[in-house]
């Protein structure tokens, strides 16, 4: 059976690419610290030596639209073109093309349906920055085949937070029941508190630092029950109008497992939003080059 080599949860900040590649006067003052944190985070995936990446993200009204909106969707295709004109325009993101792992996608679809998750699918999916940002930060060589999994955190009515957790738990079982000797990393991206297009946007910090503090603690400690006790579709409006993206972190907590402490935890307080990076190793922290295990918490 396939092995889950790493479980990774991250924010997806579309400005990272531009900040990390800019030079001279264009380089923001926080870029060096940000790059250093991302390089440590990247090492947590590298040392897991994955063969395949399952990538959980959310389309931002690029291919999925209100005339035909799935709640959870799996991409099954030999290739995925990536990034869109408006992401190129606003964030300077490059066009990309990633290989797909169709065998695993087919298994997740069949096994997911049999576990009562009525997953939608797409055989031609152009993916967006919710998936390409973690490729850029964690695997910039973009050399591994992927299975994209899209969730709807964007266009209400949305599924309940508990459903994201349940899908995460099921996704872990789906991957582990794949008859393969491949090593699979499951990577998902979301948001902490975030406001877009409202009065609290683009402040000095994320719109709700107290929510962010609690959220990082829930994720780092694997406190799914504590998180579910406080988070609802209604409550997520309070920390910022785009904070429903936190439910993708809840999905990844489900993948990692109840009470499972993250092996790598890092945050970066940026203007506008807090960045947060988490890695779990289901089978213990693997040895890395030079074995720089101080990245562990």
């Amino acid at each position: 059976m396939a092995e889950v080599a790493a479980v990774i949860a991250s924010t997806h900040h579309p400005f990272y690419h531009r900040a990390s590649t800019s030079t001279g006067a264009d380089r923001p003052p926080f870029a060096d610290e940000w790059v250093a944190k991302i390089e440590r985070f990247r090492e947590t995936l590298t040392r897991a030596e994955p063969d395949v990446l399952v990538m959980v993200g959310s389309d931002h009204f690029h291919q999925l639209w209100l005339d035909n909106m799935p709640q959870f969707l799996v991409g099954k295709a030999p290739f995925f073109d990536a990034n869109w004109y408006n992401e190129e325009r606003e964030f300077g993101l490059p066009r990309m093309r990633l290989r797909g792992q169709e065998e695993l996608a087919a298994h997740i679809l069949r096994d997911g349906l049999d576990r009562d998750f009525d997953l939608a699918f797409s055989n031609e999916l152009r993916i967006d920055h919710s998936i390409t940002c973690p490729i850029i930060t964690l695997r910039p060589q973009a050399d591994l085949p992927i299975v994209p999994v899209y969730t709807n955190i964007f266009a209400p009515p949305l599924p309940q937070p508990r459903r994201f957790v349940q899908l995460g738990r099921a996704l872990r079982e789906m991957v582990e029941s794949w008859e393969s000797d491949q090593r699979v990393a499951i990577i998902g991206t979301g948001h902490l508190s975030l406001e877009l297009g409202g009065p609290r946007q683009f402040g000095e910090h994320g719109p709700d630092p107290e929510f962010d503090r609690k959220a990082v603690e829930w994720i780092a400690s694997g406190d799914i029950e504590g998180c579910l006790a406080e988070v609802s579709l209604e409550s997520l409006h309070a920390p910022g109008n785009a904070t429903h993206g936190f439910m993708d972190f809840m999905l990844m907590m489900g993948v990692a497992g109840d009470g499972r402490k993250a092996d790598h935890v890092d945050t970066l307080d940026l203007f506008h939003t807090m960045e947060a990076y988490f890695t779990w190793y289901p089978d213990g922290v693997p040895a890395g080059p030079g074995d720089t295990a101080e990245a562990t918490r």
């Binding site: 009204f61 408006n86 606003e90 964007f154 266009a155 877009l196 297009g197 409202g198 946007q201 785009a242």
Partner: peptide, 8 residues
């Protein structure tokens, strides 16, 4: 109107 669409 969806705030993300308007803002973008």
């Amino acid at each position: 109107a969806h705030p993300f669409l308007t803002l973008t």
